[in-house]
Design a protein around this nucleic acid. Structure first.
Ligand SMILES: [Mn+2]
Ligand SMILES: [Mn+2]
Ligand SMILES: [Zn+2]
Ligand SMILES: [Zn+2]
Lengths: 158, 158
DNA sequence: CTCCTTATTGGTAATGGTTTCCATTATCAA
DNA sequence: TTGATAATGGAAACCATTACCAATAAGGAG
């Protein structure tokens, strides 16, 4: 399976064309930024990074591309409560990342990824999804789990 | 313990005064609407309902009061992804409601409360919170669990 | 009850992230 | 190479939420 890890052909081109989307330099750049990013970028973050590589790309295109990427399941969109959406490459498109959730500091807005307890979580989710699907005839596609509290820095301040 | 279930003295007055907040007719009305509401009201929903009882109360006051109520833990604020915040009386202030989470239909935005699997959840959360607190020195205060998918009506439409 | 401090108020303007609009450009199948 | 049309960027619009401010009202002191 093609990875597109910087060199090599690009893993998402097929995925994109298969849905009737065209490959453009803007989309290349935006996906490149997301691939190279380590953490939770806002649309503006992405725009600024992309702008350094190609100043011709506009903020509108960033929003539009992100919308497509999210709809394809290649990118995940989060709300951490600071008024702007955050994006990160989804597990599906990032073979180096694992399924994870977030710890959110309600004081400084720091976000910590964690991958622990995936087994506990899997078991819990399996049971919950099965039961809820049956009881509410609800077809569960995805889930969101977040913990809120104080990070180590903030808990030690008055 | 005073309930304030329509008649009787009002359960939240002490809670309010204790924090230096004054009791006003606007705040009474807003809490009344929240108490009487069955589901997930937006600020504007609340404003419209309050406006019917007392047209003098402004939208700004609704927002300000909700902010206080959320900070006191009497009201919970949610983001269901439709661009506006939703509010509901918290378990803490609503003795008839149980701890629950939400199923969100990504097609029609319907939101379903569920209280099932609280035991499974409690066990999962207990373990996760304990482990995460230890590993990340993160003091967990709250959690958010939501499931996304298609409700029974939407799953049966092409 | 009356006074006085000051928290609270409502209306309006401002904010800011996200969308919409539309004329122009670029992609890519034929 | 060419043509249909998807994609683009910049500006304007959108819209939930906040900031601002002069006017009001809650409630403790006397
Ligand atoms: Mn993450
Ligand atoms: Mn609910
Ligand atoms: Zn913090
Ligand atoms: Zn639905």
């Amino acid at each position: 399976m093609p990875r597109g890890n910087g060199r090599g052909p690009v893993w998402w081109h097929g995925h994109f064309r298969g849905c009737g989307y065209r490959i453009t330099s803007g989309r290349e750049a935006i996906l490149g930024v997301l691939t190279g990013a380590d953490k939770h970028l806002s649309a503006e973050d992405i725009f600024l990074k992309v702008h350094r590589l190609n100043p011709a790309i506009g903020l509108t295109t960033v929003y539009r591309t992100l919308e497509i990427l999210v709809s394809l399941g290649l990118v995940s969109k989060f709300d951490f409560g600071d008024g702007r959406a955050r994006y990160e490459l989804a597990q599906k498109s990032d073979f180096s990342s694992q399924h994870h959730h977030h710890l959110i500091c309600t004081k400084c807005n720091r976000v910590i990824d964690y991958t622990e307890f995936v087994d506990d979580e899997k078991e819990f989710l399996r049971r919950a999804e099965k039961g809820l699907s049956a009881k509410y005839k609800f077809d569960i596609k995805d889930h969101l789990i977040q913990f809120y509290g104080l990070c180590d820095k903030c808990r030690n301040k008055k």
